[in-house]
Design a protein around this nucleic acid. Structure first.
Lengths: 165, 165
DNA sequence: ATAGATAGTTGCATTATGAAACTATATTAG
DNA sequence: CTAATATAGTTTCATAATGCAACTATCTAT
């Protein structure tokens, strides 16, 4: 009765969750984005149990999200390109929290373009021509990799994402 | 020794995770996006244990992500506006999985603009003028709600997101 | 070489999950 | 209206994951 893994789902979201979906993992990645690199930095920043941190870091290295420095000196963990690519996920989640679970005093963090200091465009879904799309203005289409289309087919005309015929 | 909650962190990402970060929760939300509404639909779609599903649904209703139908008839769970606003999170995660944990046969799903059927703009971070920004082209600035700036201050000059001076 | 700091590992108590059986409510068939 | 079935949970129990503290090992500085 192991904790059920999501890897068997043919679903990119489930695949992603199997890598970053465990307790603490996203917060470790956030810390890495903010420059933390060493075991004790993560540990004291998060208050995570050391054994759990150990397991999480190992898996993140194994899945290629973090790279562990080799050679002499204390180990350091840094985001790989694959890990850096999680930035939109992190910012989307942060933005949702800012909006729906806000701090009473106002925004905690703002993300700005380093070049000119202007805030980034709000996270969201945009059409090819740049229009901002609302949840129900989007459809999902099955691609070649969707073999087990059971769920997709079973879906009734959808709430938010209508399936394509 | 309860499972540690993230609510005490003054961090919008942690707040978000305290709502959607538990095992199974994001997949339930995905199913809701694809139109599933009833207990047994979620259960058989995911293969989740019924007691766990029960707990998850209760919490999602309590946090306002899902709304449970009242009155007679079998209960139905639907995304609220707050829940629909998780779409960018879901799509960002799906996109990352498509890119870095792909199915051998190709993309599983494509999201398209319902109006013209064209694929949406790739999920990412965009500058105010529309330029696509890479991870390291972004800085984080502390806002008024960031009272405990310990972590933020401790952060060394950052990997991916440089903190503002 | 020694002392302290950093990076883990080990062992144990508790909580959360997985699975199956059980109960309760709602719907359908007769 | 009643009986049968479907749906929506709850309960119980075994196991795995987490939290915590103590321990060991490795690295760094003096």
């Amino acid at each position: 009765m192991k904790l059920k893994s999501f890897e068997h789902f043919n679903c990119s979201l489930a695949q992603t969750l199997s890598v970053i979906g465990e307790h603490w993992t996203m917060l470790i990645i956030r810390d890495a984005f903010f420059g933390l690199r060493r075991f004790d930095q993560f540990q004291s920043s998060l208050g995570i149990a050391r054994n759990v941190l150990s397991v999480r870091l190992k898996k993140l290295v194994q899945t290629g999200v973090l790279a562990k420095s080799e050679g002499p000196g204390h180990p350091e963990y840094r985001l790989t390109e694959k890990g850096l690519a999680l930035q939109p996920v992190m910012i989307a989640m942060t933005h949702w929290g800012d909006t729906y679970l806000p701090h009473p005093d106002g925004k905690r963090l703002t993300f700005v373009d380093r070049k000119d200091g202007k805030p980034i465009k709000p996270v969201g879904i945009y059409a090819a021509d740049g229009r901002r799309l609302k949840p129900k203005e989007i459809k999902a289409k099955a691609g070649p990799g969707l073999q087990d289309i059971a769920l997709f087919e079973r879906s009734v005309p959808a709430e938010g994402i209508e399936r394509s015929e």
